[in-house]
Computed example of a mutant assay.
Amino acid sequence: MPKIVDHDQYREELLDQCFDLFAKKGYAALTMRQIAQGLGVSTGTLYHYFPSKEGLFEQLVRETTLRDIRGAIAAASQQNCVLSRVAAALEYVAQNEDFLKKQTLIWIEFYQHQHRECGIPTEVFHRVWQESEQQIAALVGLDDPKLIGFLSCAIDGILLHRIYEPQNCSFRDHASMLVEMVKLYLRDRGKLISAE
């Protein structure tokens, strides 16, 4: 009897394993053949699930980003006020800091490679942000695109700074300052009382 394969689950497993390959070797250094060898599958199997290295990587970006957002939402959904939800989401980032720093470096390297190759940055990051922005807004509990964008930029910036200066200040220290800034922002706009 032939083995029944859940293709979506298998694709996700391949993507998870690809993350480690890209983290070790970098996007530009890997070919589809090397990725297939690293995963222990045939090149044909890899092309069955992913049309190209770029297509594979774009799916990796989308899947890992949305999984991170779902994890933050799960962590924050137990909280009943905006500031507690923001703090819980930031704690999720702190707990997954090593993975997220690797992810940041891989994304930057991919962006640089795409820009060098075709002169036009890839749209994958923009599409993923558009897809996740509403989920982040629901997580925070505010319809404030500027605040959502600021939080995303601040988290990205803290992670990048932690790569450069890992001993300077912990992610949690920066996160607590960020929560205080959000508190002042909400208080200044008269949204803190209604949000809590």
Rank of each mutant, 00 (worst) to 15 (best):
I69V: 13
A88V: 02
C118A: 05
L151S: 13
L139D: 00
W107C: 01
A87N: 14
L60R: 10
V41K: 09
A89Y: 08
L139S: 00
A74W: 05
D156C: 08
D68A: 12
C81G: 06
A23E: 13
Q103I: 01
H126Y: 05
G26L: 04
M32K: 06
M32Q: 08
F99A: 00
S77P: 03
L151V: 07
L139W: 15
L151Q: 05
T43C: 00
A94M: 01
S77N: 12
G119E: 05
L21V: 02
N96Y: 01
A72P: 04
A137E: 03
K101M: 10
E133N: 06
K146S: 08
L30P: 07
S52P: 09
I136C: 03
R70A: 15
I35Q: 00
E54S: 09
F22N: 01
L56M: 07
Q130C: 08
Y92T: 04
Q37G: 10
A76G: 12
L151E: 06
T43R: 08
R127G: 07
A72T: 00
Q59C: 10
A28G: 06
E131T: 15
L100A: 06
Q78H: 12
R62E: 15
Q34F: 01
F110W: 10
I73R: 15
K24T: 09
I136A: 09
S77L: 04
V128S: 04
E117V: 12
Q95W: 00
F57P: 09
A76S: 15
D20S: 10
S77W: 01
K24D: 13
Q135H: 15
S132L: 02
H48E: 07
T65H: 08
H113A: 12
Q95L: 09
A72I: 05
G141L: 11
P51T: 15
Q134E: 11
L46V: 03
S132G: 15
L142M: 13
Q112D: 10
Q79C: 15
G38Q: 11
A74T: 14
V86S: 03
T122C: 06
A137K: 09
T122S: 15
L56Q: 05
F150C: 03
T43N: 08
T43G: 13
H115Y: 10
Q112Y: 06
H115F: 11
A28S: 11
I120H: 15
A87Y: 05
L105H: 02
Q34Y: 02
Q34V: 00
G55C: 04
H48S: 07
L56G: 13
M32N: 13
